[in-house]
Amino acid sequence: MSRILEVSDLEIELELDGSTISPVRGASITVDRGEILGIAGESGSGKSLTLKSLIGLLPRHGMAKGTLLFSQDGGEPSPYDPADVRGRGISMVFQEPMTALNPTMRVGDLISIGPRFHEGLSRRQAKARTLDLMERVGLPDAERRAKMWPHELSGGLRQRVMIAVALSTKPELLLCDEPTTALDVSVQDQILGLLQQLRTDLGMAIVFVSHDLAVIGELCDRVAVMYAGRVLETGPTTDLLSDPRHPYTAGLIASIPSFDRLDIEPRGIPGQPPDPAVESSGCPFADRCAFTKDDCRTTPFHLTGTRDRQTACIHPEVLRDGRPA
């Protein structure tokens, strides 16, 4: 099990209108080579910012603290400069295919610009790699497609182009920020299958951020659940989904409508996430949790468990009973 990415105690602060908010308050995640890690969370959980900080895409008024270790070229993970690693080991796929591609560049040029810049490939070499990548991501008739402009392609095809662009510099780690959220269900299905295939073929690790736990369940080997800027629970996907150890995870799972099981009505989680401008030390979910006890708010937030299976809940036994203890 060789580690490719280690993030420890990531904290992100943003200055907005004179006040400081902390959308990420101490997140730690690890990714192994060839692993697909899912980061699940709703809006405001800090999952997107966490991802963006890995390659230095924070907004200008943002500040990040913490330890980021990345393993380049097979060695042990070591500290790296997030801005430097773009196109050199880590690539990213964004959410909105309609706006993420430069409309003034043809598809082929978009894919070949990375290798030409970072690896100094000649035009012919870059073209060969481009055509190969386009086949790989499911864009047949590549020669003709490479000459097209982004606006001539549909959302699903643009997303494939974006994946090809991300792969063009042979990353060992691919970051995906809700890449299928803006796509139709049938297209999402294709893209997820594609990502799985790419992981198998290229041995690439993937960090996949999404608000859709079912999508994460389909694709990811392990999951980290984020809420209010913190990681509340991590574990292998099947374990986490069948045996959640944090009430928030259980609440999320219970909220998801499924069309296989009509006997259970989905239940929401009442209330709202806490204000990111306000400091807090105990469990951020305490105000909405059905099982809150007195020490939930006073005990400082921490994760317990092994690297493979962690939870921030200090009373996970309440979930076994399924009723307020």
Partner: peptide, 20 residues
């Protein structure tokens, strides 16, 4: 078939519906 279902894992390279 294409809709993601909790607890079902995707097969690499599979898709319920081709094209757009």
């Amino acid at each position: 078939a294409a809709a993601p279902k909790l607890g079902v894992v995707k097969t690499a390279g599979s898709a319920a519906l081709k094209g757009e």
